[in-house]
Design a protein around this nucleic acid. Structure first.
Lengths: 221, 221
DNA sequence: ATAATAATTTAGACAAATCTAAAAATAATT
DNA sequence: AATTATTTTTAGATTTGTCTAAATTATTAT
């Protein structure tokens, strides 16, 4: 009753993520996110529904039940702990960690994750700044203030990346921006809402609105 | 052409191990080792044979081809590196590592294993003393001298455990014997071929013939 | 409000890995 | 060498997760 296939875990995790922006998750959205045909989604939702992990009504999408949410958070916990491990201990770059963590997250030994968490020093965020749920499933979601809203002259520290696609991560690498980087706004251009910034490692860069909206920060007090 | 299912990897690994004691591996032996019905073994051997990983002739068993052997050694490498990681970094006991490594070994990212190997300091033996193949598949198999053949008064260091069943490992734990433990024979009893030994951690124990034959050693020069 | 469009589900099929029961081949025994 | 026993294979089914094509339901636009 507590054993799930890799496929099922991926469904739960993906439904959880899609639920962050919409109450209910549609069959097509899930299909797009998983790269699976909509008909297959319907089949799987019926199975997960029978198991009590999602609440599903035909033609009206689905959402996670309480047990389903717990399970999903557990998978996300594993994923992010492995990302942290790959980044901090094995020296992987932040573009690389996601793919490998996608595999490691399905290794489901309870003690392994507890010991790994301890070994890593109970980290609270992964290499992209996303919060890592603790053993009880609790995670601290910090304020989502984007770089776009930081006024001229002001400085702040990067805490999280919104869109974590390879394209975004590549740009951030080139501009020497990572989690923990201190950024100061030199000049904002109202015309296209782009900005000139300076990072703590003496780099100066031009940031478009699109990119600045995906860089989340906290005051550098 | 280079992607294998968990099931297929388990077949290759198990055939490799069974080949250590017999040239050719029979369907029934494989079935017993994998806990799978003989009919299923036949099916899978046909698939692996078509892929060129095993050489299989109906009614006459199978053995690994060169590519199959390479693949099997790769899986064993992953398994033993993870065992080392679990034991040395996460503090798992040697009875526990095998089961978890059985899952982790199927995560097949090349770079992950190279980096893990480096992170662990390129260990050459796992927690049970079994050799870990290097990135090229090479492994050093040491002399298999068992404690049973060590003469009275002589001392030696434990290098490997033969039968790694939970039963054996539990006994060794109780007698404070692990890889690296220095053992001195105090007295041998010809009647039942048991012996009295002393370990470097001041413990004295009685060892039966059965157990002594599963403790491999090297001279403590 | 009805027709066109989009989303979703059903129906039927497939591949992978397994099973049981029965048939066939090999090995052992008298 | 013939019979018995053992091992292995074949045949037919099952489960899981997937697919395509067709049917159905919901939504949007005229």
């Amino acid at each position: 009753m507590d054993n799930f296939s890799t496929a099922q875990e991926n469904y739960l995790k993906t439904i959880y993520h899609l639920q962050q922006t919409a109450e209910t998750v549609s069959t097509n959205d899930l299909a797009a996110a998983l790269g699976t045909a909509p008909a297959s989604i319907t089949d799987m939702l019926k199975k997960l529904s029978k198991k009590g992990l999602v609440s599903y009504k035909a033609y009206y999408g689905c959402h996670l039940t309480a047990p389903g949410t717990d399970k999903a958070i557990g998978i996300i916990r594993r994923h992010r702990l492995w990302e942290y491990f790959l980044s901090q201990k094995l020296g992987f770059s932040w573009e690389e960690v996601h793919e490998v963590a996608e595999e490691l997250e399905h290794v489901s030994n309870e003690k392994l994750i507890l010991k790994l968490d301890e070994f890593l020093g109970f980290p609270r965020t992964d290499p992209h700044g996303d919060p890592i749920p603790d053993a009880k499933g609790k995670m601290v979601q910090q304020q989502q203030i984007s770089l776009a809203s930081l006024p001229e002259k002001k400085a702040a520290v990067v805490t999280q990346i919104g869109n974590q696609s390879p394209e975004v991560l590549e740009m951030l690498d080139e501009k020497n921006i990572a989690i923990g980087t201190r950024i100061q706004v030199i000049k904002k251009y109202p015309f296209d809402e782009s900005m000139e910034i300076k990072t703590d490692n003496r780099h100066q860069s031009h940031i478009t609105r699109e990119l600045s909206q995906n860089i989340f920060i906290k005051g550098s007090s």
